[in-house]
Amino acid sequence: PESADLRALSRQLCLSYHRHFPLTKSKAKAILSGKTHGNSPFVIHDMKSLTAGQYFINCRQLPVLEHQRSILPPEEPAEELELSVFRRIQFRSAEAVQEVTEFTKSIPGFTELDMNDQVILLKYGVIEVMTTMLAPLMNKDGTLFAYGQIFMTREFLKSLRKPFCEMMELKFEFAAKFNLLELDDSDMALFFAVIILSGDRPGLVNVKPIEDLQETVLQALELQLKTIHPDCPQLFAKLLQKMTDLRQLVANHVRLIHLLKKQELQMCLHPLLQEIMRDLY
């Protein structure tokens, strides 16, 4: 494709990214650096602040479609702290899956792919995209949550009992390295599309059109990185290497969730997340 076509594709994906993801990297950066003119996030650092912060967790959610409303886990007021935190994180994750799905459908050519292949690409790609999306929301001390209204400290997450305390630590380590690449929101949009369009996911029927789509997005990403980050010629290669780390990270996460399902009898896994993680790794 001509570079004008590649730039048009970049613009299209960037617009879709801003349309579907409420907390962008630039917004998160402003919140984390205290440049939001008095609207600081509510800090959750212990059980007392968690109880007080529940209002913020629940007060802004994307519109939920009727058929999705019926699958939301019920509120359980007397549940244990760890299960309560885990349920809230799951709920937000299920919303994020819907956002990533809408973004995915906007990738030119995606909806023309075989329907089974679309399901496989989304199933394998969505947690990798969500993990990457989490990176800009994190710094060494904690992570933004609930559209940036909450900052949950890393120490609080580490203080939860095993195995809950292990759920976020690897993601903080990934985020610290990923954030060094200093991508902007438009780079992230293209990178998400590259992740989704991975032609080596197990069970794909018609790989060629997926690889062709990915090749075009890769060209657009390479062109954009060279244009926006001319002082970092290795950025494209460094970013592609992150895809290997992401797969490892997601495989670990899924193993941990399967372990939780066996050990925590009271734990209720969100049906959408359950569907994604079933037979994943």
Partner: peptide, 20 residues
């Protein structure tokens, strides 16, 4: 596969709220 992934399948088939 779509049978075992009913919710994902439905999300993929739903028209995007942003696009009406």
């Amino acid at each position: 596969l779509t049978e075992r992934h009913k919710i994902l399948h439905r999300l993929l088939q739903d028209s995007s709220p942003a696009e009406g």
